[in-house]
Design a protein around this nucleic acid. Sequence first.
DNA 1: CATACATTTGACCAGTTGGTTAAACCAAAT
DNA 2: ATTTGGTTTAACCAACTGGTCAAATGTATG
Lengths: 210, 210
Amino acid sequence: MISKKNCEKEDTEELILKAARQVFVRKGYEGARMQEIADEAGINKALLHYYFRSKEKLFDKIFLEAFRNFWPSVKEELDRGKGTVKSLIKAAVISYTDLLMKMPFLPAFVIGEINRSPERMEDLLLATGINPRFVLDVIQKGIERGEVIPLEPRSLLINIVGLSLFPFISRPLLSRMFFESDEEYLKFLENRRTDLYEFICRSVLTEYQP
Amino acid sequence: MISKKNCEKEDTEELILKAARQVFVRKGYEGARMQEIADEAGINKALLHYYFRSKEKLFDKIFLEAFRNFWPSVKEELDRGKGTVKSLIKAAVISYTDLLMKMPFLPAFVIGEINRSPERMEDLLLATGINPRFVLDVIQKGIERGEVIPLEPRSLLINIVGLSLFPFISRPLLSRMFFESDEEYLKFLENRRTDLYEFICRSVLTEYQP
DNA sequence: CATACATTTGACCAGTTGGTTAAACCAAAT
DNA sequence: ATTTGGTTTAACCAACTGGTCAAATGTATG
């Protein structure tokens, strides 16, 4: 009864989730087909509904998970730093770039879905319990300390996140528009890790020498 | 034969296009329904297929149009300027903010669709004939002239576009996460017009005093 | 009025989609 | 060996979707 689940074969539930992740993230809710998820998982379509009652239920699980990943653990990296804005910028840019190198389709998926049904955001934000106040506090303290020029903390945070995500969100466009190949674009993204950090620091730190 | 079209009632073709724009841009290709477009236009569904043979044909028209709008006419504003990078940044930020204030759903739509079918990009870029080389040239000249610090021109361009678009792409999220209401968020976007310009200039111009 | 032609409609169709059901399967407990 | 209970499947269904078609409507021209 338990032996089968643990040893004989991979847990079916996890198998389904893996397949659903693949399909939903690449095609979105509307574009995804239950049959395709079943095929990807190598199981019968009816089994999907046995484990997760409906498409929406299954999707919600995947989306919530994606949304959580989407908010990378800047916090830990930040705690290791000195609580300066400089270290915040570095932590954020690096965390995001690392995350998105591993999961390049994540941001386009999340953004597509929050635009498809913005109503969900309320519940979603409550469910995840994510709140970025502590990041805003770090920036505010940085301003008071004179490390950062006076600015709207939310604005800086949005700039950091936007600059990190945008090249991944628009990859199919930017890659073809400005680069010879997708490999070359990948190299560009690698270099961007440090370029971006410097780009932001130059703009907002009162004293910055690379 | 002509009198009817011009005077008696609005051109049906334009009526359909307006409805299709509305529905496609908000729901994407997969989420849009031909019936909904017909309803929105106040006509029969069969009439859609009479004017535009298939959903894909109709969509292509809307998408190409959207993609063209998406590349705002920085060129004209730039020509009026002195060809400096400083004026390029101003022109780009202002053009984009103005455009997106009028058409806030445009970028999420375009980005969603280029991610759904990246293959199309090749044909699309050819069809629009858009090429940003002249913008890159302006930046390159700016570097040689010493106006701009040494950097990868493509990187700066991507930063400018990304910073301009991101707040609109992620509006449903950012608005709820950081602001009390959507109206407050709109005010933020208004102020951003100048904030963003200064943010970029501080980072890349060798000499910049606001 | 009658003809010719474009426009508009309601009814309809075939394929797809999410979801259901009853039966089969299978490992463990009796 | 039989029972039990969770797991898996093939077959099926109702609703929906893009698309078609023949008939109806309108409109300018002869």
